[in-house]
Simulated assay, not measured.
Amino acid sequence: MPPTREHAELKLQPLPHAGRSLAEQVISEVRRAVHTGAMVPGRLYSVYQVAEQLNVSRSPVREALLRLAEAGLVQVERNRGFRVVLPHPREIVEIFGVRLALELPAVRRVAAGAAGATGAAADLGGALRATMDEMAAAVGKGDEGLFFHLDQALHDHILVAAGNGRSRAIVGGLRDTMRILGTSTDDHSRTLRQVHEEHEPIVAAVAAADPEAAERAMRSHLTSTGLILAGQAARMQGEPVDVAALWASIVN
Rank of each mutant, 00 (worst) to 15 (best):
219 R>Y: 11
121 A>Y: 05
58 R>I: 10
55 N>T: 03
229 L>V: 09
110 V>T: 06
168 R>N: 00
104 L>R: 13
150 L>A: 01
79 N>M: 10
12 L>H: 02
72 G>Y: 06
64 A>R: 01
242 D>R: 13
177 T>Q: 01
224 S>H: 12
123 D>K: 00
183 T>Q: 08
221 H>G: 04
68 L>G: 04
56 V>T: 10
179 R>T: 12
110 V>L: 00
16 P>R: 08
83 R>G: 07
148 F>L: 06
78 R>Q: 14
89 P>E: 08
16 P>E: 14
135 M>E: 00
177 T>M: 01
188 H>I: 14
221 H>D: 10
159 L>V: 07
54 L>I: 05
182 G>F: 02
30 V>P: 03
237 Q>D: 07
119 G>N: 12
71 A>H: 03
185 T>S: 14
89 P>V: 02
72 G>S: 02
130 A>S: 09
23 A>C: 15
16 P>I: 10
71 A>Y: 04
203 V>P: 02
129 R>M: 03
57 S>C: 09
135 M>S: 03
76 V>I: 15
21 S>V: 11
164 N>K: 07
125 G>F: 01
84 V>T: 13
25 Q>M: 13
100 L>E: 02
223 T>W: 03
68 L>H: 02
144 E>W: 02
21 S>A: 13
188 H>R: 05
198 E>D: 13
77 E>P: 04
213 A>I: 04
230 A>C: 08
39 M>Y: 06
103 E>H: 12
235 R>D: 12
165 G>N: 08
86 L>P: 06
95 I>F: 00
169 A>Q: 13
150 L>F: 08
43 R>K: 01
200 E>A: 14
115 A>Y: 12
35 H>W: 13
77 E>W: 11
247 W>R: 10
107 V>T: 12
8 A>V: 11
110 V>I: 11
134 E>H: 15
84 V>H: 03
104 L>V: 15
113 G>I: 08
38 A>N: 07
1 M>R: 14
243 V>H: 01
157 H>G: 05
110 V>M: 12
86 L>M: 11
235 R>K: 15
171 V>C: 09
53 Q>W: 06
189 S>T: 06
177 T>L: 05
222 L>F: 11
65 L>F: 09
216 R>G: 00
92 I>K: 00
17 H>F: 13
12 L>Y: 03
249 S>Q: 15
13 Q>C: 05
180 I>Q: 01
136 A>R: 10
132 M>S: 15
114 A>M: 13
71 A>N: 12
21 S>T: 11
240 P>S: 13
110 V>C: 03
149 H>S: 14
219 R>I: 07
13 Q>K: 06
249 S>A: 15
234 A>E: 05
85 V>C: 11
150 L>D: 04
56 V>F: 01
248 A>F: 03
18 A>S: 15
87 P>T: 07
63 E>Q: 14
218 M>T: 07
22 L>I: 00
196 H>L: 14
61 V>S: 03
61 V>F: 08
16 P>H: 01
